[in-house]
């Protein structure tokens, strides 16, 4: 049947989801854009007539705000160091579990995946104690190798790496599943042919595995990056952004400005800048992908 469905029926099926998305996502998004051009703060909350349009003032203030630059730096650190490390860990785990030598593949897959489904707030609390300078498991392991105790979450040098380590542990199982599926899609004949030609393992990996995994890797790098830009619960629970703001992320800064100090206009502007950064980097990744797959 090719004729159109009556518009009434279409509306009935679409309206619950679309009105929810419009009312509770698109409308707040547009309001956010508007609010970011105002001085909306705690006084405005009491009396809306106090709301004043200030143009680009919030954005100008952000670019003069040292704390914002700190949060931006920390977030980039987490995304561009933690992200690739997570992806590499996932790839290595996938290669391992895809190897014909491994027994009990399904069992290992389940174990590796377990951290992914668990509650980030709960595991961040557990890790906070694992990182404890005096009795934490991490320093115990280091002590076995004769390495001095590290104040993981109390030293600005180590706090972000500690959060990255937690993120790798928590997330690697997810991308591993995607990589395993990608690996299983590579025709085995290619490897057999390469072996006949006397190719080394490294050559096979570089010339067959990596190119075939490129679409998977592209997808993974986009979702990982978008997810990592939204870092919040780990520093909220483990460090409150410290020490010396070394783990203050953009979302945590946004949260503090908005919900602790009620600088709503300013907070929303920070969120918008985060959005624009994610948008730009995603677009760059798409362009880059087009270049390698014509």
């Amino acid at each position: 049947m090719k004729e159109k469905t009556s518009i009434g029926i279409v509306l009935i099926f679409l309206s619950p989801a679309l009105s929810a998305i419009f009312l509770f996502f698109i409308l707040p998004l547009l309001s956010a854009l508007f609010i970011s051009f105002t001085d909306f703060d705690i006084y405005t909350l009491g009396d809306f007539r106090r709301l004043k349009f200030v143009g680009l003032e919030n954005y100008i203030k952000i670019f003069e705000d040292d704390l914002f630059y700190k949060a931006l730096y920390n977030t980039f650190y987490f995304v561009f160091i933690g992200g690739p490390l997570s992806i590499i860990t996932s790839l290595l785990a996938a290669l391992l579990l895809n190897s014909k030598f491994i027994k009990l593949k399904k069992f290992f897959r389940t174990v590796y995946f377990l951290p992914v489904v668990t509650t980030i707030v709960a595991v961040a609390i557990v890790w906070r104690y694992l990182y404890h300078p005096r009795f934490g498991v991490f320093n115990y392991i280091l002590s076995l190798f004769g390495i001095n105790a590290i104040d993981w979450l109390g030293d600005p040098k180590y706090a972000m790496p500690a959060i990255i380590l937690l993120a790798i542990w928590k997330n690697f199982g997810y991308n591993m599943i995607l990589f395993i599926a990608g690996l299983q899609n590579i025709p085995t004949e290619l490897y057999e042919a390469a072996e006949l030609d006397g190719a080394s393992n490294w050559q096979k990996f570089k010339e067959i595995t990596l190119p075939f995994l490129a679409p998977t890797t592209f997808f993974i790098s986009i979702i990982t990056m978008i997810g990592y830009f939204q870092l919040f619960a780990e520093p909220y629970v483990m460090t409150q952004g410290g020490p010396l703001n070394s783990t203050l992320s953009m979302v945590l800064y946004m949260y503090q400005e908005g919900f602790r100090w009620w600088n709503i206009g300013y907070s929303v502007s920070i969120a918008f800048i985060l959005f624009i950064i994610i948008l730009i980097i995603t677009l760059i990744q798409f362009r880059y992908e087009k270049k390698i797959h014509y």
Binding site: P28, I226, A271, I278
Partner: peptide, 15 residues
Amino acid sequence: LMIVPGQVTMLPLFL
């Protein structure tokens, strides 16, 4: 819309 991080909408939605 999937590219928009949910945090952008949270303050207005809260209000």
